[in-house]
Nucleic acid binder design. Structure first.
Lengths: 215, 215
DNA sequence: GTCTATATCTCGATAGAC
DNA sequence: GTCTATCGAGATATAGAC
């Protein structure tokens, strides 16, 4: 258990998880400084004093919520990435997995984006660890893109930019959900929009990467 | 001048613009609730009391900064979008213009994303106005995509999803700059990365949209 | 218009009864 | 473990001299 100085505890109680959910919801929308302990307590349906009983202060609460969220992100995502025979299948599975992850972990995404906007002091350590573990979703996909280029399955593209583009298109529409609703949806259902989006992204990216007959 | 109830004043003094710049910098990173008036005053290099002299309170300061930022966004961007003979040129010009805009208006982007994360109460009105004016960058590009589909210049894609994808790839890497630095840059220059990205995005999206010979 | 001082209030944090 | 009451820091906002 003493593997790394900032490992994530696995034995959170029910109340603690309840607090985590509430804290994540608030931190994700308002950021660390904008969030109010009272609002978190209300969302968790507990007394404000209990927050300080379980977590010394706001700073540690935020740090633990962030670490726990990143931990879940790695675990949940690694599991969703299956092996696929062709790059076409890999791309389809990745988009499906990523969009679904984003859909059901919206606040985790918002938290990470918020941390980026604020300067990302906490990100560094976590990202470095993800990179070293090779567990990061980007890292995995980058290698697959490299292999696909090597095998001539796709055009000779820059793996880093390519993966960044795939991820951007899977996340941004969700981060900017209020804007997207206003600009692109006129009373249509959000869920239907997300389903359409998965298909669109696969088409766009697949054709964007596939080799050109004339090239 | 009484065109609309929430029009943006055009006669801001030098001091007021100085405050706007500082306020935008802070609001963009910390959000409305996370920002501190003292920090804004320091960044603007004026006394904290002066903030309240020029703007009654935090709420109105934020509202005016947001409105002014959206106004500048519309104006600055509309001007950068030139007519182009082919869709290929349109796409290239759009990416160049958008990425450059994002690069030199990073805090404006961060502010909008922050507002989206927080729920986007202020966005609604502004976006609706942009849509009605037809001035919105997305709106303009959507029409060009529709026309290009019609003319057979590109594959029959959904214009809304397509434009959303273009915009996502132009903005997200910037919003997540700290993460991108950590994951994709190893001491390389950010400016060089941005230049590479413009080229990559054009390639990826152009091939993603171009008609298939075999289709 | 500018600054100091201060009023007012909100929020994070703790004490202490149960 | 839970709650009420409250302290004290820090934030917004204002008063008033210059």
């Amino acid at each position: 258990m003493a593997s790394s100085d900032s490992d994530v505890r696995a034995d959170y109680s029910d109340t603690e998880r309840q607090i985590f959910d509430a804290a994540l919801r608030v931190f994700a929308r308002k950021g660390k400084d904008g969030a109010r302990m009272q609002e978190i307590a209300d969302a968790a349906d507990i007394n404000k004093a209990m927050l300080h009983y379980y977590f010394r202060n706001k700073e540690t609460l935020y740090a633990e919520v962030f670490a726990f969220t990143m931990h879940r992100f790695r675990a949940s995502f690694g599991a969703s990435l299956k092996e696929a025979p062709t790059f076409e299948e890999t791309l389809r599975v990745f988009i499906e997995g990523y969009v679904e992850f984003v859909r059901s972990n919206g606040d985790a995404m918002r938290l990470m984006v918020n941390e980026n906007l604020a300067g990302g002091t906490l990100l560094g350590e976590h990202l470095r660890r993800m990179k070293e573990d090779g567990q990061a979703p980007p890292q995995i996909l980058i290698e697959k893109v490299e292999a696909a280029v090597e095998a001539g399955e796709i055009r000779p593209v820059d793996p880093h930019h390519t993966v960044l583009s795939v991820i951007s298109t899977c996340i941004f529409f969700f981060v900017a959900k209020p804007t997207v609703r206003e600009m692109h949806l006129e009373g249509d259902s959000w869920n239907a929009f997300v389903e359409d989006r998965k298909q669109h992204l696969f088409d766009l990216l697949y054709h964007g990467l596939a080799p050109r007959p004339d090239a």
